[in-house]
Design a protein around this nucleic acid. Sequence first.
DNA 1: TCCTACGCCGCACACGTTTGCATAGCCAGG
DNA 2: CCTGGCTATGCAAACGTGTGCGGCGTAGGA
Lengths: 337, 337
Amino acid sequence: MKRSSIKDIARLARVSHSTVSRALSGSTLISPETAGRIRKIAEESGYRPSAAARSLVTSRTATIGVVVTSIADPFAAEVVLGIEDAANDHDYSVILANSNAQPEREVRVVRAFEERRVDGIIVTSSRVGAIYVDMLSQTQVPIVLLNNQHPSEFMHSVMIDNVAGGLDATRHLVGLGHRRIAYIGDRFGCQSDTERFGGYRSALDLAYLPFLPEYVAHGDGKPDGGAPAMESLLSLPSPPTAVFCYNDMTALGAIRAISARGLRVPADISIVGFDDLFFAQYSAPPLTTVRQPMRDMGRLALETLLQLLSGAATQPNIKVPGELIVRQSTSAPMENS
Amino acid sequence: MKRSSIKDIARLARVSHSTVSRALSGSTLISPETAGRIRKIAEESGYRPSAAARSLVTSRTATIGVVVTSIADPFAAEVVLGIEDAANDHDYSVILANSNAQPEREVRVVRAFEERRVDGIIVTSSRVGAIYVDMLSQTQVPIVLLNNQHPSEFMHSVMIDNVAGGLDATRHLVGLGHRRIAYIGDRFGCQSDTERFGGYRSALDLAYLPFLPEYVAHGDGKPDGGAPAMESLLSLPSPPTAVFCYNDMTALGAIRAISARGLRVPADISIVGFDDLFFAQYSAPPLTTVRQPMRDMGRLALETLLQLLSGAATQPNIKVPGELIVRQSTSAPMENS
DNA sequence: TCCTACGCCGCACACGTTTGCATAGCCAGG
DNA sequence: CCTGGCTATGCAAACGTGTGCGGCGTAGGA
C-alpha cells in the first residue's frame, strides 16, 4: 500500500488539494474549522508530505550537507553532534559525508550534494587545498568552514582561537614555575599548528623566557607521532620540565614516551594538550588541556549557515575562545630543576 | 543564475528532453553519437540532475536514514563510518540523526525520515523499547538493526557474537593461569550484557572453575561506573586476580580504581575489555580486549539493507565474530595468588 | 435593491524528471 | 513498388507539492 498523498487527504476531507496544502501550512486563508478538520484527517491517516515534491516547487530542501574527513575522528564527531542537534531544532536534516581525504571521494561528495540540492554546506577541519574549495564554491550554495586549515577570504568560517589557546596553555605552565617549556607541533605545518605555536612564543616573550629552537619537536597529530618527538626532547642535555602539545593525541604519545623512560607525569614533566577530547579526562594522568567547545562550534556553524540562508548579515569569520582545563598532568616543576 | 535543467541541455543539443534523459542514463535507445554529444554538453555546462525530481517519479531516493543515540559515541562513529563508506560505493547518501535517547527526538527523526522518503533505515545500538520500534516499522521501509538491545523477530539485524566474545575473553584469562576471575557488567541489564556474562560463565564451567556471585559487579558502561564496581571487588577478602569488563569504558574505570589503590595492571590484576575502541591501544597499559569489527559491521548493515531493497533473499539475523586482541593489560597471575 | 468588499475556496500551472507509446525514417525482402 | 520491421527520436502523462488568480457566496453600506 502506497503512502497517501495530499490528494488522498483532499478526497477524504471533500476539499481541493490546495486547501489541504494551505490548511497544513497554517495559512490564514482557510477557515479555522476546515483547517482543524483537515489536520485531524491528515493526522489520522498518517499523512507525511513528500519533501521531494515540496522542494521541487519551493527549491529549498531543508537539508544541509556536512563533510568531514572521517566521522571516526572524535573531534569531528563532537562537531557533527552539535550540528545535527541544532539542525534538528530548526527542522533541517543533515546528510553526512566522509571525504577520507581522498580527492576522488571529494568530487563524489560534491556531486551528491549538488544533485540533492542541499541548502548549505559545512566542512570541518579539512586539510584539503584549493581544488576542493573551488569545486565547493562553484555549487553556489552557502558554505561555512569549521577549523579549516585554508580559510578562504570569501567564505564564512568558525574557528577556535588557536593563538589565545596556545598562550593560555603556556602561561599556565609559566605560572606553575616552569622555565624550560617545550612545544611539540604538527609536522604538516598546518595553520592551527602555526597559530598555537604563535601563542606559545608570545607566552614565552611575556614571561621574558628565551625561545630555544631545540625545544620544538614535531609529531603527526597522533600518539605514534607524539612519542618519538617527546623522546627527542628527553634526549636533550637539558630536557624541558614541561611540554605544550599541539593536541591531545600528541600529548598521549608524549606521556607514553615519558612513562617508557621511567619518568612520571607531572612529577618529572608536565604535559598540556589541546582539544579536550573525551578521553583526556580518562588518560593517566587526566590531561590538562585547552578545551575546544566542539559541540557549540558545530551549533554555531549551523546557525551561521542558516543566517546566511535567510539573507541576514553575518559576521564572516567567527573566532571562539578555548578554555584551559587544568587536570593532573601539570604541576610545579621539581625543586632541583 | 539558476541551475540548468534537463530542458536547457535539450535546447543546447537540439533534441527533446527525453532524449537527454535517456542519453545520460545510458539507454541503448539512443545512438552512440547523439549520446556522446549530449553527454559532452551536459558535462560542459555542469548539469546535475535534480534528485528530488527524479525520486518523485521513481519513488526511490537513494538515501538511507541512520539513527544513533549519539554520534559522539566512539562505537557509533566507527559504525557510521562503515555505513557511509559502503553507501558511497553504491551511490547512496546517508542522512544522520541523533536520537539522544530522547523520545521526543525520536518521533521527530522518524517523521523526518518519512517525509524524506528514505529507502531504508539503520538504527544502531539503541536501548529504546517497543514504541520506537513500532513507529519505525510502520514506516514500511526496510530496517536493519545493529547491535540493538531489543532485536525484534521481524526485523533484520547484524549483531556481534557476545557469547563467543565473552567466552574468548575469559578463556584467555583462564589460559594465563587465573582462577579468580571476576566480571563487571552493565547495571541496566541489557541483552549484550547478559550474553557476554553468559560467555564468561561458560568459560568458567569449561575450566571447572566455580562461579562465585560475589565476583560479579556492575558499572554503567562508562568509566565512572566501572571504577566503583572495581573498588567493591578489591574490597573482597579474596579479591580476583583478573577481571573481564563489559566494555572498554568500564575497563578504563576499573584500571583507574586499581591504580588509585596503588596496585598495578597487569602485575597485580589483569583486565580485559570489550569493543576495542580506538583509545584502547593508548590506555595505560594498552588494553587487552575483544574487538568488534565496527566498520565492517556498518558496511554489512548497509549491504544487508541494499539486498533487502533489491528484493534478494537475505539472512535475517547476522552474527559477526569478535576478535580477542591481546595487549598489555593481561598477564599470568602472581605466584602467591 | 444594488454595489462593494471580503472571507473562503478551487482551478490550473509550475517545478524537473522518467517512461510508455507513437512516429518518422530507413532498409531489406518479397 | 509495397510492406514489414527496426532504429532513433519526440510527445505527453505522471509523480506530489505550492501558489497566483479568479470565483462564489455572504454581509454590509448606500
